[in-house]
Amino acid sequence: MNRLVVEGLHAGYGAVTVLRDVNLEVREGELVALLGMNGNGKSTLLNCIMGFVRPTSGRVLLEWEGETIELSRSAAHETTRRGVAYVPEGRRLAPNLTVEENLMLAGGSGRGKAKLKENLGFCYEMFPILDERRRQLSSTLSGGQQQMLAIARALMTSPRIMVVDEPSVGLAPIVVEQVISTIRTLQETTNMTILMAEQSFFQAIEVASRAYVLSHGRIIHTFDQKVDPASSEEIRSAMMGIA
């Protein structure tokens, strides 16, 4: 089975431990939500998966098409080239490049290179607004459009898995809905495997097939909507640490 596995992960910054014994799994074709309030370690976990943060112990493995790659040993650009694309919090676009240049930069190296034209066409079809503004600097886009561009940039790398960090941050509620529904559409039409961190859990659990709740650096709950549908109230309580 193709999957991404996090095994017994501990991580922190200096003397501060942020993640304690985190275990999770994302299987091919799933949309898994990682829920938790601010400061509970969601971003640190995603940064460990990508290779921006080195875990103090534990492993991140990508088991895909018969090979097993240990991601916790590779730098972020290598992780990207191995098929784990990242949509970072705060978008992190190159502000001085145009929309198309941002896409070409991601598409022109590594896995996406062979399918550059095809991927670019797909992105413009999926996000017509980006096609319209392809010659504009990315910094001139609205927040929602920038989020679309960050997602499109991830698609340009021909990913096996997309890791999305808080796509709703800094966006108006109506735009948040658009972004979340874009991610859902993407998942439904391309069967993309997605791990998405979110704190606006109502939206996240609506689209996710499974959800992990992270609190104080530990996974305290795992919800599987197909096996055991949980009410949003139950999930909310878990996130808040009430349950």
Partner: peptide, 13 residues
Amino acid sequence: HDERAVSVSGVNP
């Protein structure tokens, strides 16, 4: 401008 933008594009900054 943004090293992370380069990293997540699969290029070593």
